[in-house]
Amino acid sequence: MLDPVFILAPPRSFTSLVCACVGQHPELLGLPELNLFQADKMEDFWSGREPDGQLRSPFWAVMRHGMLRTVAQFYSGEQTIQSVNMAERWIKTRRDRTSGEVYRELAEHVAPLRIVEKSPGYLRSRVNLDRLIATFPNARFIHLLRHPRGQCESLMSAKGGPALLFMLGSVDRSGEEPVLDPQILWHDANAQILDFLEDLPAERSIQVRGEAFLNDMDATLARICDWLGIRGDAPAIEAMKHPEDSPFSQVGPINARLGNDINFLNAPALRPGGVTVPSLDGPLDWRPDGASFHPRVAEMAREFGYE
């Protein structure tokens, strides 16, 4: 069994698309957001409560959808109301196990295919990432990047995006009035990823700019294949360009609809045409004071190769 490939990125960084594309490689298997490492015990994963009884997230019931869909697909080959009920039983019979043990069981079940997954929730705490690496010491990581202006604008315009930013505390409170400022989240999430990856040997992670992925897909996919040591021939690359072929790339049954961004699930196929890469200079649309990027945000973005 090969340890999985995880995609780490702030929200709205093309993670759904990249995970589904890479996961379509014939030696890989892209999964929905499992969120497993947000809990230590499966009992806590199922209840959505921390050991102290606190609800992990108001959306926790929805955050189990990816796991339910995965188990339903793995053990019944279908995602239906009935198979999701079956998946609930599968999870509940493992309530005494750790999330790591269960994740390994899934990884062994699909071996020799190698899992590709992204759960943005893993970034909520370093504990989650430590749990991950303790389970999969040889995991690999794609640090997926997006220009801060594109990522921030996307979050601000997404349905529920501003509310998410608020909940995650991406608020500039330094002035008189609070300002919702997505660059805080962009910066801190990336900082946390960099911190985490620095502890690993360099070959275990790769940085991929989302814009490059979309604008020069063949070359970027080939680079990822090369890094993972998997075949990068034309049929493999072509398969990766069809994220819509994954059984997880559509809405699920009524009792486990999501497991991924709903916009991606509603339209998973690649769309023709590339994306433009914005500039780091100039005022930010979401700032009423006309401010531009915080110097540390700009500095980090330049480190990532953005201008």
Partner: peptide, 17 residues
């Protein structure tokens, strides 16, 4: 172009109602 059809690690379709 032909895509490489991955072998998938789940059962073939069972009979539903």
């Amino acid at each position: 172009m032909m895509t490489a059809q991955p072998s998938r690690p789940w059962p073939g379709r069972g009979l539903g109602l």
